[in-house]
């Protein structure tokens, strides 16, 4: 048996391997075990009995206040709704959505501008055909590219919520603060996606245009933009969905969005209202997801450019 196995062992030893993938997977697994084992998750500052009491109270207080401790009554429920929730539904949802719309538009515009600098073949001396011949020039032309790329990492490496928190201290409370916070984080993401889009295009068309003497700007307007437009819209709508999600919570910081009403209800210990606003937020997110998903499917169908969900960071 073992003799017969020896050629197989040889084959097994020389099989193609991916040590980096394997190593990463192992590292992940070890980390998971270590986190559950020694991450301090099991320490509990509150005793168990208090916890259950907490949970029970929480669940009873989720019922609309006038209905607590009595039977369901549609009239009372309606009264509660039209007094406490109804008047602000429109304002809360509209401001949340409006923030997302403006922010994603600004992020897309910024991302487009930056991507031109951040994409490799566009920065070459002879775009898409060949980089500069001298080493010094190559390094020099790479500087703005690396600078923008680094800047993009900076923008997207800090979460929206942290951006908003920092900007609050500098710009004060206002719609602009929320818009800027959302826009700069997403510009970091969209800028990278657009730049990678340019780099991953099949270069043949651009090379032909360049070989016929197209200037950099003409290359951009007539060759690259048309090829990338549909996919860029898909990215933008995808980011729009995340922007809506994020903008619901920006209100927790005191900015004008749904989160503000949630925070207000929480601070006043009005769990019934808090719960209603959380549900409202989830409704907004589902609705905007559905709309954006519909648009994205249509865009994808019309452009044939297959971009699977995994390629969307």
């Amino acid at each position: 048996m073992s003799e017969a196995m020896s050629p197989i062992r040889r084959l097994h030893r020389h099989r193609p391997r991916r040590p980096f993938v394997r190593g990463s997977a192992t590292l992940m697994l070890v980390t998971v075990v270590a986190v559950w084992w020694g991450g301090g998750l099991w320490s509990a500052p509150t005793p168990g009995v208090a916890r259950w009491e907490n949970l029970r109270r929480f669940l009873t207080e989720l019922r609309p206040y006038p209905l607590q401790g009595r039977d369901w009554d549609l009239g009372l429920a309606w009264e509660w709704w039209s007094e406490r929730i109804g008047p602000v539904v429109v304002e809360a949802s509209l401001s949340t959505l409006a923030l997302a719309v403006v922010a994603v538009a600004a992020a897309a515009a910024g991302g487009w501008l930056v991507s031109v600098v951040a994409a490799r073949p566009l920065g070459w001396k002879d775009p898409f055909l060949r980089p500069s011949r001298s080493r010094g020039m190559r390094v020099l032309t790479a500087v703005p590219r690396y600078a923008t790329r680094g800047g993009l990492v900076l923008l997207r490496g800090i979460p929206v919520y942290v951006w908003a928190f920092l900007l609050l201290g500098i710009m004060g409370i206002g719609a602009w603060t929320a818009v800027v916070a959302l826009a700069i984080h997403n510009a970091g993401i969209l800028g990278r996606l657009f730049a990678e889009g340019i780099e991953n295009l099949p270069p043949a068309t651009a090379q032909r245009a360049r070989a016929e003497g197209a200037a950099r700007s003409a290359l951009w307007v007539w060759t690259l933009r048309p090829q990338l437009e549909a996919r860029s819209w898909i990215y933008v709508f995808y980011r729009f969905e995340t922007c809506v999600r994020e903008s619901t919570v920006l209100g927790l910081l005191g900015l004008n969005s749904l989160g503000w009403f949630i925070q207000d209800a929480r601070a006043g210990q009005r769990l019934d209202e808090m719960w209603a606003f959380v549900l409202l937020g989830s409704g907004i997110i589902v609705a905007s997801d559905l709309m954006s998903h519909e648009i994205r499917t249509r865009l994808r169908r019309s452009s044939q450019s297959q971009s699977s969900a995994a390629s969307l960071p």
Partner: peptide, 24 residues
């Protein structure tokens, strides 16, 4: 199980593709 691996390798070998056992 080694017995199955052995059988698989034997079959492949008789068809002239024994060396592909662990290839993608």
């Amino acid at each position: 199980p080694p017995s199955e691996v052995l059988r698989a390798h034997g079959l492949l070998e008789s068809l002239g593709v024994g060396d592909t056992l662990y290839l993608p």
